[in-house]
């Protein structure tokens, strides 16, 4: 009897610990580079430095959202290719992606996100002593970078600024996005495509103020997706890159975006940084997708015009076959434009 008990216990333990060993894995794509955290005002934010650190050129990536993760971009082809030439710094902002802690609600402000950016810049400069440092702001990251760089002291630490389909002007951008959605819904109706659905959506848009309340945000985002306002070619959508073996909490990390924007506790709908952007004097480039429904292409010229950078050192490029994510939709051209800019000002 005792032998039978011991045998069953031993078999159970062997199975248990074998499973544990097999499961102790981190996806290969996260293995390279340096990983650490920045703690600031209650948020513990992961930072991943990867790519060609021997280049001496560091590019800090400010991800979108609010509340998304740098994960989508940190392992994307465009940034892997650029990473062969430059070092990239991917970090998750407070209450976003893989960030931890329980920061106070009163830290959910653009000013605090910009302060976190300042600390990241200082940390990277301290650790790596880069020869050149660039900031790239994608979507919501465009707002953070624009705000951060509006302080001339911060500009002294950065060689160049790249805004990609950025949120520097949400006050005009959100209504523009709603109009974009209605216009494209009308096109679908005219084409006889899901007529009843789009009629209902247009009626919904007309009945609501252009607002960033979570319910509106979710429904509008879903419509943008259906109208190809995020990816002009949905086949190029990388999907959810966060797998079971990712550092970012699988699936539930998206709740960060939901709660960050919930009930307007992070009031971003009145953000309009154009007057502050006049202070930005460093070399700057604006990249935008022609078919962007999230932040329509009118905002590209708006960003370019707002920048105080001398005309000789600022540029604007529109990707004709992209919506909100040109790095995925026109990858080769995106890589070329990024390289051209960085090489010019490194």
């Amino acid at each position: 009897m005792k032998n039978k008990i011991n045998k069953n216990v031993i078999i159970t333990l062997i199975l248990l610990f074998s499973f544990i060993q097999c499961a102790s894995l981190l996806d290969d794509k996260y293995q390279e580079g340096d990983f650490f955290y920045l703690e600031n005002k209650g948020a513990v934010m992961p930072v991943w430095v990867k790519g060609n650190q021997s280049s001496g050129v560091y590019v800090i990536f400010l991800h979108g959202g609010p509340g998304n993760s740098s994960d989508t971009y940190s392992t994307a082809h465009a940034y892997n290719e650029l990473g062969k030439k430059y070092a990239f710094v991917f970090w998750d902002q407070r209450a976003s992606g893989a960030s931890q802690g329980n920061p106070d609600l009163n830290t959910f402000t653009l000013a605090q996100f910009a302060d976190d950016t300042k600390k990241i810049v200082n940390l990277i400069r301290h650790m790596y002593k880069p020869n050149a440092l660039f900031l790239v702001g994608k979507s919501w990251g465009g707002a953070i970078g624009s705000y951060y760089l509006s302080d001339p002291q911060n500009q002294q630490l950065v060689n160049g600024w790249i805004e990609i389909d950025g949120a520097h002007n949400l006050k005009d951008g959100i209504p523009l996005s709603w109009e974009w959605a209605k216009d494209n819904a009308r096109k679908r109706i005219a084409a006889g495509d899901e007529v009843e659905f789009w009629q209902e959506e247009i009626a919904w848009y007309n009945s609501k103020p252009a607002n960033i309340d979570t319910d509106y945000f979710m429904r509008h985002g879903s419509n943008l997706n259906k109208l190809n306002g995020i990816y002009k070619n949905p086949a190029l959508d990388p999907g959810d890159t966060v797998g079971l073996f990712a550092p970012v909490p699988f699936f539930f990390y998206q709740l960060n975006a939901y709660y960050l924007n919930n009930d307007n506790q992070f009031d971003i709908k009145n953000i309009k940084l154009n007057s502050l952007m006049a202070n930005i004097q460093i070399p700057s480039m604006v990249l935008w997708g022609r078919h962007d429904g999230t932040l329509p292409v009118e905002l590209a010229q708006d960003a370019y015009d707002a920048l105080g950078t001398p005309v000789a050192d600022k540029s604007l490029y529109i990707f004709e076959n992209s919506a909100h994510c040109p790095s995925f939709e026109e990858t080769s051209l995106f890589i070329l434009k990024m390289q051209e800019f960085i090489e010019l000002y490194r």
Binding site: D34, F35, F36, Y37, L38, E39, N40, V44, P46, V47, Q100, K119, N122, L123, H126, P247
Partner: peptide, 12 residues
């Protein structure tokens, strides 16, 4: 109780 894992925590 959770501890951040995988890297050093820095403050600035």
């Amino acid at each position: 109780h959770t501890w951040s894992h995988g890297g050093t925590i820095y403050t600035v």
